[in-house]
Every structure is written in C-alpha cells, then in structure tokens.
Amino acid sequence: MPHDDHDHPHALLPPEPALRVKALETILTRKGLIDPAALDEIIDTYQNRIGPQYGAKVVAKAWSDPEFRRALLDDATPVLSEMGFYGRQGEHIVVVENTPQTHNMVVCTLCSCYPWPLLGIPPGWYKSDAYRARAVREPRRVLAEFGVELPKGTAVRVWDSTAEIRYLVLPMRPEDTDGLSEEDLAALVTRDSMIGTGLPKVSA
C-alpha cells in the first residue's frame, strides 16, 4: 500500500458517492432485497467473464458458416440464446452487417444501452456526451477520429440502441483470411469493430 500508517490513523474514508452506495447496499441487504453474494457474482461476471471475446466468437462463426450468418441476421436473439448469450434484461439483439455499400455504427444517444452479453460493459467513450451526441450528427468525423477512413461510396448508417434493442455490428471479413479457423478469425475481431468505430485487424 502506498500510504503510511502514520498518515492515516484510521481507515481511509472512501469518496462520498462510495459511502452512499455502501449505505444503499446495507439498507437493501438488511431488508432482504439483495444478497451481497449475488452482487459479487454480478461484478465478477462483468469484470472478468463477459467481454468482447464473446462477440468475436459470434462474428467469426458468422464469417465461417453462411447458414449461421443468415439466421443471425434474420433474428439474432434466439440464435444467440442457443449459444448461451442472452440479455439479463431480456433485451433483443439485432446484428447489422457491414457491406462495401454500408458501414454500420452503434450508439445510445439517451444513455448507454449496449449488447452486454456479447461485449460486456461499454468503454468510457461510448458513455460520453461527446460520442452520444456526435455519432449521429457527424459520424464520418467521429470515425476519422477513431482512425477509420471509409471509401467515398460507402454510406454510414447509425443505429440508436434502446433498453429493448441492442445492436452488434458484423464487420466485413478481412481479405486474405481464407482457410483461417474460427478461433484465428475471432482473434482479428476487435471490440470497436463490433460497435462500428473500428475495423477488424488485418490477417498477419
């Protein structure tokens, strides 16, 4: 620990909001409305288990299996549930496919709805006012800031998530990846490529 005992004769006081959260937790636990063990489980799930690797697995499978891809684009929610990816909030997941004609990008203009079961907790920038406001207003400039330059002929379509519908972008499969296994393909799929603010990595 960086602190010396003589600087802090008592336990370090947490920041104000942390005390308020602790108060809520204690009240709700004492009333039997939440279980501290369940809270730990939720935190562990989102902190350590669920993350973009799940989405990457889905994308790699869609790149490899045309029938799976069709089913996914047609109605993703049951297909994903079968793979064990379903929303704890009962939301629907819609997969939107990038093509040479259309590049898709996902935002939640009102808060920060996001496909948790496939990507985990959104990064800070996804929750920022700057992204939420500008993704719709000037998507090409935002993309440029992320280092994504699209061909002139490619249109950008922005999808605004809601509590009920969350979007996942199915990026275009990179060139020169014929014969790669699903596992190798999944390694090329970045989180940002599934939000639409990035492209998959180029095959090594």
């Binding site: 909001p17 942390a18 959260v21 809520l24 809270l39 730990d40 939720i42 935190i43 989102y46 907790i121």
Partner: peptide, 19 residues
C-alpha cells in the same frame, strides 16, 4: 471495466434489483 469500485457496486445493486 469499472474505474472505481463503487461504480461496480452501484451497477451490481441495480442489476440485482432488476433481476
């Protein structure tokens, strides 16, 4: 994923109440 422990806590309390 969570910058501060209390972010994770308040998130988890809300998800638990939803569930």
């Amino acid at each position: 994923v969570f910058e501060n422990p209390w972010h994770a806590q308040v998130f988890a309390v809300t998800v638990a109440l939803n569930e």
